[in-house]
């Protein structure tokens, strides 16, 4: 399987690199990994990370270090949609635990797993800076606030649609 950045992304990346001083192209690493991950259905392979290293003229190990540090990067395959549920204190005060239990039973998987059909990954995350709308779910770059079982059902339904995915280039649109 050979990964190739789209020509659009290559152009975008060269623009992003210019935001940093000469010789500091490593600064573009996180933005580039976001783009790469979106183009590869939400996860990063070693091959991709090596390509990114070459693009930015840094060592592959420098890319691995960063890819493993940040929770938004995944080094294993994920579902077409990722349901990220906030489990930090304020969300727990407003029913996040019940919501998680509901999603787990409805999907038949535990947090951290993907449904067997590859449609949905359920992921626990920490405070999303939206505690006033607790409990909060993030899907793609959308926030769903004041969630309840009914709204969760609607979101799950949306996730089953062919074209609905959590992995679109974050620079293209804010969905």
């Amino acid at each position: 399987m050979n990964f190739q950045f789209s020509s659009e992304s290559i152009e975008l990346i060269s623009k992003i690199i210019k935001r940093y001083p000469e010789g500091r192209q490593k600064s573009a690493l996180i933005p580039v990994l976001h783009i790469a991950q979106a183009e590869n259905h939400g996860w990063l392979t070693t091959e991709i990370m090596n390509q990114v290293a070459e693009m930015l003229q840094i060592q592959p190990i420098e890319v691995y270090e960063v890819a493993t540090f940040y929770s938004m990067f995944s080094l294993k395959p994920v579902g077409k949609c990722i349901i990220e549920i906030c489990m930090t204190g304020p969300c727990c005060l407003s029913g996040a635990e019940e919501l998680l239990a509901y999603l787990e039973s409805k999907l038949g998987i535990k947090a951290g797993e993907t449904t067997p059909d590859g449609m949905i990954t359920l992921k626990k995350v920490e405070c999303l800076a939206a505690c006033g709308g607790a409990p909060v779910i993030k899907n793609g770059f959308n926030y769903y606030e004041n969630m309840n079982f009914k709204k969760a059902d609607l979101l799950l339904e949306k996730c089953t649609h062919e074209s609905f995915t959590s992995h679109s280039n974050p620079y293209h649109q804010s969905l």
């Binding site: 935001r19 490593k26 600064s27 990994l33 270090e65 960063v66 940040y70 929770s71 974050p170």
Partner: peptide, 26 residues
């Protein structure tokens, strides 16, 4: 310019933020 992080609370600490902006772990 805007620069995105990638999910790490520690990058709110100012020197970790600087490391992250340089393309490193936070």
């Amino acid at each position: 310019y805007c620069h995105p992080g990638a999910g790490a609370y520690i990058c709110g600490e100012e020197t970790a933020l600087i490391e992250s902006l340089e393309g490193n772990r936070g």
